[in-house]
């Protein structure tokens, strides 16, 4: 089953809730495997349909994307990741406004097809239905996405941070994330030398 057939099937069932798909333009593919963007509210149904009717029995990967600063024109301006002020405090970053997205890569053992399903959500309201009931492997992958992007998966039974400590603040893979210089008063690797070398008392006085 080719991605085009998958897409045709999806459009037939879900109509305009299938928003767009990557296509071949100017002789180049923009996504491999083909990426199909669906409306957030249709995501769970689409996934169920793909698993039951199209034979996509394996969820390979769940990836979050922060589209803040994504250059549609293809120039790719470089985004500063995070910086520190001279005294070691993190430089405040401008809150981003770009969308967040979740991409699910599926694979079928029955016909060997691969396809990517994506859902874009607004940054202000990052809520996506969980597909943990469809593929159990999504449970951990969604926890990781939540950990890094703060996207909340509704219906997830155990949505906790997975890689970072539970009291970590912020979502590090967002483009507007400001890297803290300390965690529980421990200077972080990569923080300015001033933070890492000055004894604790001096730092406390400064504060």
């Amino acid at each position: 089953m080719t991605p085009a057939e998958v897409e045709a099937g999806l459009r037939e069932v879900f109509g305009d809730r299938i928003l767009s798909s990557s296509a071949v333009e100017e002789g180049r593919d923009t996504a491999w495997p083909r990426r199909i963007d669906v409306a957030v509210d249709a995501l769970e149904e689409v996934c169920r349909y793909l698993r039951d009717s199209q034979g996509f029995d394996r969820l390979l990967c769940v990836s979050g994307i922060d589209y803040e600063g994504y250059d549609e024109s293809g120039k790719g301006k470089h985004i500063e990741i995070s910086r520190y002020e001279e005294d070691g405090s993190p430089t405040p970053t401008k809150p981003g406004s770009g969308d967040l997205a979740v991409v699910y890569h599926l694979h079928s053992r029955a016909h060997g097809g691969e396809v990517a399903i994506a859902a874009r959500v607004r940054r202000t309201e990052p809520k996506v239905p969980s597909v943990g009931q469809v593929w159990p492997t999504a449970l951990w992958a969604e926890r990781e996405t939540y950990d890094m992007y703060g996207i909340e998966f509704e219906g997830h039974p155990d949505l906790r941070r997975i890689l970072l400590p539970e009291d970590w603040e912020g979502f590090p893979l967002r483009k507007d994330y400001a890297m803290p210089s300390r965690y529980h008063d421990v200077p972080l690797e990569g923080a300015p030398l001033a933070v890492r070398t000055s004894p604790r008392e001096v730092r406390e006085e400064k504060e």
Binding site: D29, A31, W32, L60, C61, D71, E72, G74, H105
Partner: peptide, 8 residues
């Protein structure tokens, strides 16, 4: 250019 790939 703008594009994406998932390769295993």
């Amino acid at each position: 250019p703008n594009s994406e790939v998932f390769f295993r």
